[in-house]
């Protein structure tokens, strides 16, 4: 136990652990942060740590892909956002008309509203539920532990399109299992997939299916909480809730911060499941109006249904800027709230 504690006093080790956690979740942000932290500390020491070098090596394929397949098209779309372009003819310069049009387009407002409400509901619910699952997983030991971790992660392996189809069945107001379950308690469930007042709630319910990645990240963080801290608190008379609030939560706050950012970004970019459920075919497109119109779906419609590529590019860039601002705010706020064990020791 002492050895473990000593290891965790190493700033580089802490950063590497964070990087490993993000790697399991496919999140580049924490890896980048880990690399940045490692680099900063290496600079202080006057040399580059092997871990940092390896971090860059592992990041290289993604960086190459970013430059080749994302940065170039992104810059092209920035230019297109100032044009009137239908994908077939040549783009015509339109100044800021596409951006001005967004302020007058009622569907943009509706799409933003739906997306924001969804994000505000999904992110806290997903994280609370994932944390609860991670706590349960953390208590399971022995041979069953691996099996349970796999089972908890399995829903994340389901393709988004399949999830959308699955939840069309489950949430159906007349024959779905969700309402059948509610009926056992005498509750008449709503029309989740057809009532505009409930469609968004149904989507939030569906979104809680894919908690595997968030759960695994939080689980990894929980595994790294030093047991001696909890034991010391227990000796001092702290109850379970007090230990969780005063020891566990601060120790996993960096992981929590990471999943908040990742979940927020993915919520703002919500597309696949909702498109499959409510826009994936002509009949569906005719029947649901704007109740499930998310921002990226509207962007996609403008681009490929109505061939307004310039307008769609402007929509994309506004979303990019909004996400960047929200992430920046979260980082600023997070820096005050998050406890970085590594920095504590380094300082």
């Amino acid at each position: 136990m002492k050895k473990g504690a000593e290891e965790r006093t190493s700033g580089e080790k802490g950063a590497a652990e964070k990087g490993a956690a993000s790697g399991a979740a496919g999140g580049e942000a924490v890896a980048g942060k880990a690399a940045a932290e490692g680099g900063r500390r290496a600079g202080r020491a006057g040399r580059v740590r092997p871990e940092t070098r390896w971090a860059y090596v592992f990041l290289l394929p993604w960086l190459i892909g970013l430059v080749l397949f994302q940065a170039g098209p992104m810059l092209a779309s920035l230019a297109l956002s100032f044009t009137d372009y239908d994908l077939i003819g040549a783009p015509e310069f339109a100044g800021t008309a596409n951006y001005a049009r967004m302020t007058e387009d009622p569907k943009v407002a509706r799409a933003i509203g739906n997306t924001v409400v969804y994000t505000l509901l999904h992110v806290p619910l997903a994280i609370i539920l994932a944390l609860a699952l991670a706590l349960v997983l953390n208590r399971i030991t022995g041979r069953a532990a691996g099996a349970f971790r796999t089972i908890f992660y399995l829903p994340s392996m389901t393709p988004y399109v399949a999830v959308g189809v699955l939840f069309l069945f489950l949430l159906n107001g007349q024959a779905g299992m969700v309402n059948a379950f509610l009926a056992l308690f005498g509750v008449e469930g709503p029309q989740w997939t057809t009532d505009p007042d409930w469609i968004l709630m149904g989507i939030v319910l569906m979104s809680l299916w894919n908690l595997g990645s968030t759960t695994i990240i939080l689980f990894a963080a929980l595994r790294n909480v030093p047991r001696e801290l909890s034991e010391a608190a227990m000796i001092d008379g702290a109850g379970a809730w007090q230990r969780f609030r005063a020891v566990t939560l601060p120790m996993i706050s960096s992981a929590l911060f990471f999943v908040v950012i990742i979940n927020t970004i993915s919520s703002l970019q919500m597309f696949d499941q909702v498109y499959t459920m409510f826009f994936g075919n002509q009949i569906a497109q005719q029947s649901y109006g704007d109740a499930a119109l998310f921002y990226v779906i509207y962007l996609f419609q403008q681009a490929f249904q109505f061939l307004h590529m310039g307008y769609a590019s402007a929509l994309a860039w506004v979303l990019f800027v909004v996400i960047a601002i929200i992430t920046l705010i979260q980082v600023k706020v997070g820096n005050r709230l998050v406890y970085y064990e590594a920095e504590e020791h380094a300082g």
Binding site: G72, M74, Q269, F271
Partner: peptide, 13 residues
């Protein structure tokens, strides 16, 4: 999602 966006914009370019 990102692949689709990249494809769209690349095609547009």
């Amino acid at each position: 999602r990102s692949g689709r966006a990249a494809t769209a914009v690349l095609a547009a370019a």
